[in-house]
Design a protein around this nucleic acid. Structure first.
Lengths: 204, 204
DNA sequence: GAAATGGGTTAACGAGCGCTAACCTGAGGG
DNA sequence: CCCTCAGGTTAGCGCTCGTTAACCCATTTC
């Protein structure tokens, strides 16, 4: 081995390809031989790096959830510290971070809400917990921006906006506008959706 | 058999249970024995009604896509005929119809964008075509309401709003507000998202 | 009243799966 | 110069799955 970074490369390479394949054909639709072939080794060679196929999925899902949560927390701290532009800036930062993730790691976003039930109980609980904390982080920020929005509808609104932002994998054809334009569009739509949710809740 | 309606009941019963199971655990995660057990017969008895497991999924997905499309077309005609409230009323009707579907047939909505790739080529092409026509229907109506929105971003916006509306299966816990409130919230968010998309596109 | 038919049963087959076992190899380290 | 060991290989086991075969039994039809 050359450097420590290269040592972990093989593992990361496997995870990356596994994520792509899982997202394309589903966890049960992909065999270990295919995953091996995708990284140039074949079949059981994977078991030198992972105890099993389940472990790959678990590591992927836990990793995604953790990354989203820690990234979100970091953004809330940073954007909250400078305190410019009020609470709206914090929400903008959260949205921007989620869009970056959705656009850059499409397979992971797809897996994230599609294959959760294939996990062992303990792993699923962990992922669910991380996801819930991420949602609560958003709910707080959203209610900071729109104080008249009660908590239950705010939570539903956050889930709905996740659905909106995570829709990017579906329109993967090279027809649509460029990355920056897509990100701007999604950002505007998310803000508008939250604003309308608050407006509707205030009337009701 | 008693009536023709009862004759088709068994088939429909199978399709309903299969949809639920596919949505819960994925197409490859469900065995034919489980589907049979869910309707009171066991295993290969299903082959008196369907030529294979794939055919069940195909019929489900084609049926969903067709229902959405014909329902959408009907609503556009009806709401367009009365011509009250302008083009906004047509869009409202489309949104309402989609929300009804998402709230009442959750498993089908889940399958609809999750298991498409498990179909035979010909079936997948058919479903894709129906889906595309449905999207184009929406794009026309949206651009009627927001004329300054160009076609490519309008298409992306429609996909994004589908993601927003189809998020309901994720928040199935009995915590959230009632059906009517959820529908109203989603409706408001969808309208707001479109409006903001048009606004952002006009500026750029 | 025999014949046909719709709708079900159980047994079993063949393929594919995840995973283990046993073996191999080439690069450090003493 | 041998030993260790990380990281591969192929063979194969056991299990599950979708599907077929063969049989059965009501109910309807002529």
């Amino acid at each position: 081995m050359a450097t420590r970074t290269d040592a972990s490369t093989r593992r990361e390479q496997i995870l990356k390809e596994a994520a792509r394949l899982f997202a394309e054909r589903g966890f049960h639709g992909v065999g270990v031989d295919e995953i091996g072939a995708a990284v140039g080794i074949s079949g059981p060679g994977l078991y030198r790096h992972f105890p099993g196929k389940d472990a790959m999925l678990a590591e992927l899902l836990v990793g995604i959830s953790g990354q989203l949560l820690t990234g979100g927390r970091r953004r809330v701290e940073e954007a909250g510290a400078v305190a410019e532009g009020g609470p709206g800036a914090v929400l903008d930062s959260l949205i921007e971070g989620h869009i970056d993730f959705a656009l850059d790691d499409r397979p992971l976003i797809t897996l994230h809400d599609r294959e959760l039930d294939r996990l062992r109980d303990s792993d699923r609980k962990l992922v669910r917990q991380l996801q819930r904390q991420y949602v609560e982080l958003w709910v707080e920020v959203v209610r900071d921006v729109h104080p008249r929005l009660a908590e239950p509808p705010a939570r539903a609104a956050v889930h709905a906006v996740f659905g909106l932002l995570n829709s990017t994998p579906h329109l993967s054809r090279p027809k649509l506008p460029g990355r920056a334009a897509t990100a701007a569009l999604l950002h505007a739509m998310a803000r508008g959706a939250f604003a309308s949710a608050a407006e509707a809740a205030a009337k009701a």
